[in-house]
């Protein structure tokens, strides 16, 4: 695939965590193909796996009759992924405002923190089909995850 072309791949997976490995392998291979750095590959795969985990667990509640649709798109070297579940969504505007994250001892509430840290842009959209998360990683971008 050429670096300057728009290339797109769609994965349609069941609501089962065992398919996360397939998503991870797909994005790692594609990002490598588009010459993303090893750190950037780790970033996009971490954010994407987190988004898919949330879609399976919190969106579809592991329902066997519900699917998660993952679109991977490379555009001019930048990467945009969407993850769509069949759930009812949540108050993402409120969650996005909470930049501090949860209490350190809390067992939940770190999904958005992870997705935001490992991408350059994070968007949510909810309609009658379900919740869609859009993750953008710019080739030259860094996210906030650098130590």
């Amino acid at each position: 695939m050429g670096k300057n072309n728009v290339e797109q791949m769609i994965l349609n997976i069941p609501s089962d965590l065992k398919y996360l490995g397939a998503v991870d392998a797909a994005i790692q291979d594609l990002a490598r193909e588009f010459s993303f750095s090893p750190d950037a590959i780790n970033d996009v795969s971490t954010a994407l796996v987190e988004a898919c985990s949330n879609a399976i667990e919190h969106g579809n509640h592991f329902a066997k009759d519900k699917r998660v649709v993952v679109t991977l798109r490379f555009n001019g070297g930048d990467f945009v992924a969407t993850v769509q579940d069949e759930g009812r969504g949540f108050d993402f505007a409120k969650a996005l405002r909470d930049e501090a994250g949860p209490d350190p001892m809390s067992e939940r509430g770190r999904g958005i923190l992870i997705m935001r840290a490992f991408t350059d842009d994070l968007k949510f959209k909810c309609d009658d089909k379900g919740l869609t998360v859009e993750l953008t990683k710019l080739r030259g971008g860094g996210g906030d995850a650098g130590q």
């Binding site: 996360l20 991870d24 795969s45 796996v49 987190e50 985990s53 067992e107 939940r108 770190r110």
Partner: peptide, 17 residues
């Protein structure tokens, strides 16, 4: 462990607590 997600972190925190 090849990777961990936020639910996996929750598992670690639960058992840590």
């Amino acid at each position: 462990v090849s990777w961990i997600n936020s639910t996996g972190l929750g598992i670690l925190i639960h058992n840590y607590n």
